[in-house]
Amino acid sequence: MSTVSLQQPLVRAPRRRRVRWGRGLAWAVMILFLVLTLFPFLWIIRTALSTTRSLPSAPSDLLPVDFTWGAFARVLGLSSRAQAIAQGGSGASVNFWLYLRNSAVYATGVTIGQVFFSSMAAYAFARLRWRGRNLVFAIFLGALLVPPIFTQLPNFILIKNMGLLNTLPGMILPTFFMTPFAVFFMRQFMLGINHEIEESAALDGAGPWRTFFRIILPLSSAPATTLAILIFITTWNDYFWPLLVGNTGSTRVLTVALGVFESQTPSGSPDWAGLMAATLVAAAPVLILFIAFARKIIDSIGYSGGK
């Protein structure tokens, strides 16, 4: 992908003064949107560090009200029932660690399978010659147009018939082998690999398997990593499918659990501090991944979308 960086102003307005005014205004708008984007995150943190019972007394204070780590302790199951109720929690045990584990297994499972098998398919579409290749690829691509819910309803029945309802494998399986997007993404990259490398490998007597594992996969490690990160984030944040097939205590993932946690309060007013602490913990893995791979993720968005 050609990414030309355009740092200098492109068009110079006739007079300098107007430029300076225009730039000032432009920065003001940009900063306004940055504040709108980031402020809710500050509010999550501020609330998570507050005591729920004290929140109504200072609803617009920018700093935590009655500072406490209690909400985090409650969410992670580190505080006693009495403590939790005193701070405005529900006292009901939320098995947060279990949901965290389920989310991790679900997202990791889908990511590993999908990246690996989609790369294999992409190799077949991009580098190997076989009859019907273009037709099969067109059919794969056609699936991109189908709205997910259309296949998810019958997939629910399928998983149910397989006896895999409310199991992690049942949640993972449908996207374990491929998604049209993943195959398309990897194929785009593999089309650009130099043919000579493969030809010299073939001369040395390497078969397609050796070529794939020794040459193509290592060469594709950068886009494969990007794809893996994108799949992980999407799966981690997925709500609809886990709600259909995994909405019981033992296989609930974080997104589904958060929806339940919200309605699990006795007095009517939710345990806001606990809820916000829970969302922070639930978002943490993805945010950490983002900090580690920010560049890769940001650049990939132009790549997949601009296509």
């Binding site: 984007t37 980031l38 809710p40 995150f41 984030i233 981690w236 944040n237 997925d238 709500y239 997104t255 958060l258 929806g259 969302t279 639930a282 978002a283 993805v286 945010l287 983002f290």
Partner: peptide, 9 residues
């Protein structure tokens, strides 16, 4: 940043 957190959050 907001796109990275789930719809639910």
């Amino acid at each position: 940043l907001p796109w990275l957190i789930s719809n639910v959050i």
